[in-house]
């Protein structure tokens, strides 16, 4: 018997006009589980991830985080309040970091906690230091984003998300924009989070990382989940032809 799911996506569907980008997707993630979503570009994997915190609202379907529905229907004003509350519990990391260029690393990390949780300056300082230590960048606390490398920027972005003490972390191709030699430092941080049993949903192009770190892998194509299962099965013995083709092409392109 499995526990009640921590993140529960039920019958998620999304379309732009006649174009269906998500078709009846169901996904249950248990607490502490790490799920990778792979698939070709345009498969809908990023759209699904961005639906979880309602950045890209679904056309129909439900998203639940523990016992709260994320995308419940409310009048606009109440919904605004509700979603801002829920988003504090869902951390997100973007492909292009989206750090605030006008703030230092310290400012990037403490802006939201100070504003939304009303913590003191002292508590904010401690928080910034703790989170930066977690991603190994304590010595960059007073730098501006433009003074950091891509890998460092992404680690700061992770620290910024963690500072809100989220229940789940979403990673939207967090290493895709990085030079190859900078990918590993970000992967290491994500692995560390995995060891701390953070619940994570990761959209990625990196099959090796998905294989090493994740408990489950979903292969998406054309808006549906084609195949899912433990990484050994998906990567070693994929059943579906589309999965096989995708993985073969991917392996070739990496050679």
């Amino acid at each position: 018997m499995t526990a009640k799911p921590f993140v529960d996506i039920r019958h998620a569907a999304k379309s732009y006009g006649t174009l269906e980008v998500l078709k009846d997707i169901n996904l249950q993630v248990q607490k502490g589980q790490i799920v990778a979503i792979i698939g070709p570009s345009g498969s809908g994997k990023s759209t699904l991830l961005r639906a979880i915190n309602d950045l890209d609202p679904l056309t129909s379907g439900e998203i639940w985080l523990e016992d709260k529905q994320v995308n419940k229907s409310l009048p606009p004003r109440q919904y605004e309040k509700h979603i801002n509350q829920v988003r504090q519990e869902i951390g997100m990391v973007f492909q292009h970091f989206n750090l605030f260029p006008h703030l230092t690393v310290h400012g990037n990390i403490t802006l939201a906690p100070k504003m939304l949780k009303g913590i003191s300056d002292k508590e904010a300082d401690d928080l910034a230091k703790d989170q930066l230590a977690r991603v190994g960048l304590l010595d960059r606390i007073d730098y501006y984003p433009s003074q950091l490398s891509g890998g460092q920027k992404q680690r700061v972005a992770i620290a910024r998300a963690l500072a809100m003490a989220p229940k789940v972390m979403l990673f939207d191709e967090a290493t895709s924009a990085l030079d190859p030699e900078l990918v590993e430092e970000v992967n290491l941080v994500m692995k560390k989070l995995a060891e701390e049993h953070m619940t994570m949903i990761i959209v990625t192009h990196e099959m090796g990382f998905a294989q090493d770190v994740c408990d489950r892998v979903l292969f998406m194509d054309q808006g549906i989940v084609v195949e899912e299962g433990p990484p050994e099965k998906i990567f070693r013995n994929p059943e579906n032809e589309r999965t096989q083709n995708f993985l073969r092409k991917h392996l070739q392109s990496q050679k």
Binding site: Q88, F100, L111, L116, A161
Partner: peptide, 13 residues
Amino acid sequence: GQNEASRTLGMSR
């Protein structure tokens, strides 16, 4: 992306 990042952190408009 600046707007997205802020909203994702739970900040209001």
